[in-house]
Protein backbone atom coordinates (compact mmCIF):
# COMPACT_ATOMS: atom_id res chain seq x y z
CA UNK A 1 0.00 0.00 0.00
CA UNK A 2 1.55 3.23 -1.11
CA UNK A 3 1.26 6.57 0.63
CA UNK A 4 -1.64 7.84 -1.51
CA UNK A 5 -3.67 4.68 -0.97
CA UNK A 6 -3.02 4.89 2.76
CA UNK A 7 -4.19 8.51 2.92
CA UNK A 8 -7.30 7.65 0.92
CA UNK A 9 -8.10 4.83 3.28
CA UNK A 10 -7.71 7.20 6.24
CA UNK A 11 -10.05 9.65 4.57
CA UNK A 12 -12.59 6.87 4.03
CA UNK A 13 -12.36 5.93 7.68
CA UNK A 14 -12.84 9.59 8.65
CA UNK A 15 -15.80 9.78 6.28
CA UNK A 16 -17.31 6.70 7.87
CA UNK A 17 -16.87 8.20 11.35
CA UNK A 18 -18.36 11.54 10.22
CA UNK A 19 -15.11 13.34 10.93
CA UNK A 20 -14.11 14.32 7.42
CA UNK A 21 -13.86 18.12 6.87
CA UNK A 22 -16.69 19.51 4.68
CA UNK A 23 -14.15 20.91 2.23
CA UNK A 24 -12.98 17.39 1.35
CA UNK A 25 -16.38 15.77 1.52
CA UNK A 26 -17.53 16.65 -2.02
CA UNK A 27 -14.26 15.50 -3.60
CA UNK A 28 -14.36 12.14 -1.80
CA UNK A 29 -17.98 11.52 -2.71
CA UNK A 30 -17.10 12.23 -6.38
CA UNK A 31 -14.28 9.70 -6.15
CA UNK A 32 -16.60 7.14 -4.59
CA UNK A 33 -19.16 7.53 -7.35
CA UNK A 34 -16.57 6.97 -10.02
CA UNK A 35 -14.46 4.18 -8.38
CA UNK A 36 -16.14 0.87 -7.55
CA UNK A 37 -13.06 -0.35 -5.61
CA UNK A 38 -13.34 2.56 -3.24
CA UNK A 39 -17.01 1.85 -2.64
CA UNK A 40 -16.20 -1.76 -1.85
CA UNK A 41 -13.46 -0.68 0.52
CA UNK A 42 -15.84 1.72 2.29
CA UNK A 43 -18.38 -1.06 2.64
CA UNK A 44 -15.74 -3.37 4.07
CA UNK A 45 -14.67 -0.74 6.59
CA UNK A 46 -18.29 -0.16 7.63
CA UNK A 47 -18.87 -3.86 8.18
CA UNK A 48 -15.64 -4.18 10.14
CA UNK A 49 -16.64 -1.25 12.33
CA UNK A 50 -20.07 -2.78 13.03
CA UNK A 51 -18.51 -6.13 13.86
CA UNK A 52 -16.05 -4.59 16.30
CA UNK A 53 -18.67 -2.53 18.09
CA UNK A 54 -20.81 -5.59 18.91
CA UNK A 55 -18.00 -7.79 20.08
CA UNK A 56 -15.80 -5.68 22.28
CA UNK A 57 -14.20 -7.67 25.08
CA UNK A 58 -13.94 -6.46 28.71
CA UNK A 59 -10.27 -6.38 29.30
CA UNK A 60 -8.91 -5.89 32.82
CA UNK A 61 -5.67 -4.05 32.95
CA UNK A 62 -3.35 -6.09 35.15
CA UNK A 63 -2.21 -4.33 38.35
CA UNK A 64 1.46 -3.76 38.65
CA UNK A 65 3.29 -5.17 41.64
CA UNK A 66 4.07 -1.70 43.01
CA UNK A 67 0.45 -0.53 42.72
CA UNK A 68 -0.78 -3.68 44.49
CA UNK A 69 1.49 -3.20 47.50
CA UNK A 70 0.89 0.56 47.72
CA UNK A 71 -2.85 -0.16 47.83
CA UNK A 72 -2.40 -2.48 50.82
CA UNK A 73 -0.21 0.10 52.57
CA UNK A 74 -2.91 2.78 52.14
CA UNK A 75 -5.58 0.46 53.59
CA UNK A 76 -3.42 -0.28 56.64
CA UNK A 77 -2.80 3.44 57.17
CA UNK A 78 -6.53 4.35 56.96
CA UNK A 79 -7.48 1.53 59.35
CA UNK A 80 -4.95 2.51 62.00
CA UNK A 81 -6.05 6.19 61.82
CA UNK A 82 -9.71 5.21 62.40
CA UNK A 83 -8.71 2.98 65.32
CA UNK A 84 -6.73 5.82 66.86
CA UNK A 85 -9.75 8.17 66.68
CA UNK A 86 -11.99 5.63 68.40
CA UNK A 87 -9.36 5.02 71.10
CA UNK A 88 -8.97 8.74 71.78
CA UNK A 89 -12.73 9.34 72.13
CA UNK A 90 -13.17 6.37 74.48
CA UNK A 91 -10.02 6.63 76.58
CA UNK A 92 -11.03 9.97 78.10
CA UNK A 93 -7.89 11.70 77.00
CA UNK A 94 -10.01 14.06 74.93
CA UNK A 95 -12.92 14.77 77.25
CA UNK A 96 -13.16 18.28 75.92
CA UNK A 97 -13.82 17.12 72.39
CA UNK A 98 -16.35 14.59 73.68
CA UNK A 99 -18.18 17.26 75.70
CA UNK A 100 -18.10 19.63 72.74
CA UNK A 101 -19.54 16.94 70.54
CA UNK A 102 -22.40 16.29 72.99
CA UNK A 103 -22.83 19.85 74.25
CA UNK A 104 -25.83 20.58 72.10
CA UNK A 105 -27.62 17.52 73.34
CA UNK A 106 -26.75 18.22 76.99
CA UNK A 107 -27.95 21.77 76.66
CA UNK A 108 -31.20 20.52 75.22
CA UNK A 109 -31.68 18.05 78.06
CA UNK A 110 -30.87 20.68 80.68
CA UNK A 111 -33.33 23.04 79.10
CA UNK A 112 -35.96 20.30 79.09
CA UNK A 113 -35.43 19.58 82.80
CA UNK A 114 -35.60 23.27 83.72
CA UNK A 115 -38.78 23.73 81.74
CA UNK A 116 -40.36 20.61 83.22
CA UNK A 117 -39.47 21.73 86.76
CA UNK A 118 -40.87 25.18 86.05
CA UNK A 119 -44.14 23.68 84.88
CA UNK A 120 -44.34 21.22 87.77
CA UNK A 121 -43.46 23.73 90.53
CA UNK A 122 -46.55 25.39 91.94
CA UNK A 123 -46.49 29.19 91.97
CA UNK A 124 -45.24 30.69 95.24
CA UNK A 125 -47.41 33.77 95.04
CA UNK A 126 -51.03 33.35 95.87
CA UNK A 127 -53.04 33.45 92.74
CA UNK A 128 -56.46 34.57 93.80
CA UNK A 129 -58.25 33.08 90.86
CA UNK A 130 -61.73 34.10 90.03
CA UNK A 131 -64.14 32.65 92.55
CA UNK A 132 -67.67 31.52 92.15
CA UNK A 133 -70.38 31.44 94.77
CA UNK A 134 -73.99 30.40 94.66
CA UNK A 135 -76.40 30.74 97.54
CA UNK A 136 -79.15 28.17 97.80
CA UNK A 137 -81.75 30.59 99.17
CA UNK A 138 -82.76 34.12 98.18
CA UNK A 139 -83.08 34.93 101.87
CA UNK A 140 -79.35 34.45 102.27
CA UNK A 141 -76.72 37.08 101.49
CA UNK A 142 -72.97 37.28 101.83
CA UNK A 143 -69.97 39.50 102.30
CA UNK A 144 -66.56 38.54 100.99
CA UNK A 145 -63.34 39.55 102.67
CA UNK A 146 -60.11 39.04 100.77
CA UNK A 147 -56.68 39.67 102.33
CA UNK A 148 -53.82 39.08 99.90
CA UNK A 149 -51.16 39.70 102.54
CA UNK A 150 -52.60 37.23 105.03
CA UNK A 151 -53.54 34.88 102.19
CA UNK A 152 -57.03 34.45 103.45
CA UNK A 153 -60.40 34.63 101.81
CA UNK A 154 -63.50 34.70 103.93
CA UNK A 155 -67.15 34.54 102.97
CA UNK A 156 -69.58 35.69 105.62
CA UNK A 157 -73.08 34.30 105.21
CA UNK A 158 -76.11 35.88 106.88
CA UNK A 159 -79.89 35.81 106.74
CA UNK A 160 -81.22 39.01 105.15
CA UNK A 161 -84.23 39.14 107.47
CA UNK A 162 -82.70 38.37 110.85
CA UNK A 163 -79.19 39.78 110.69
CA UNK A 164 -79.48 42.76 108.36
CA UNK A 165 -79.10 45.19 111.23
CA UNK A 166 -76.20 43.14 112.60
CA UNK A 167 -74.37 43.20 109.26
CA UNK A 168 -74.60 46.97 109.13
CA UNK A 169 -72.96 47.19 112.52
CA UNK A 170 -69.42 48.49 112.12
CA UNK A 171 -68.18 46.15 114.82
CA UNK A 172 -69.12 43.20 112.60
CA UNK A 173 -67.85 44.45 109.28
CA UNK A 174 -65.35 47.05 108.13
CA UNK A 175 -67.06 48.75 105.26
CA UNK A 176 -63.78 49.27 103.43
CA UNK A 177 -63.26 45.54 103.23
CA UNK A 178 -66.62 44.82 101.77
CA UNK A 179 -66.61 43.33 98.31
Amino acid sequence: MNKNENQLELKLQAYLDGELPTAELAALEELLSSHTELRLLLEELRLTSIALKGNELDLKVPETRDFYWSKIARQIETGSRRQETVYQSVSGNLWVSWIRRHLLGLTGTGFAFCLALLIMTPPKQVAMKESEMELASDDMASYTYNDQQQQVKMVWLYDRNSTESQAKDSSMMDSENEQ
Binding site: P122, P123, K124, Q125, V126, A127, M128, K129, S131, E132, M133, E134, L135, A136, S137, M140, S142, Q151, V152, K153, M154, V155, W156, L157, Y158, T163, Q166
Partner: peptide, 22 residues
Protein backbone atom coordinates in the same frame (compact mmCIF):
# COMPACT_ATOMS: atom_id res chain seq x y z
CA UNK B 1 -79.29 18.50 105.69
CA UNK B 2 -79.98 21.33 103.24
CA UNK B 3 -77.64 22.92 100.75
CA UNK B 4 -76.71 26.41 101.98
CA UNK B 5 -74.13 27.55 99.44
CA UNK B 6 -71.73 26.37 96.73
CA UNK B 7 -68.26 27.84 96.39
CA UNK B 8 -65.53 27.39 93.80
CA UNK B 9 -62.22 28.58 95.13
CA UNK B 10 -58.49 28.27 94.61
CA UNK B 11 -56.18 27.16 97.39
CA UNK B 12 -53.06 28.16 95.46
CA UNK B 13 -49.97 28.82 97.55
CA UNK B 14 -50.90 29.05 101.24
CA UNK B 15 -54.33 30.50 100.70
CA UNK B 16 -56.93 29.66 103.33
CA UNK B 17 -60.63 29.72 102.50
CA UNK B 18 -63.12 30.42 105.27
CA UNK B 19 -66.90 30.43 105.31
CA UNK B 20 -68.48 32.01 108.38
CA UNK B 21 -71.76 32.98 109.90
CA UNK B 22 -73.31 34.34 113.07
Amino acid sequence: GKLVSTHKESLAGQCVFIIGGA
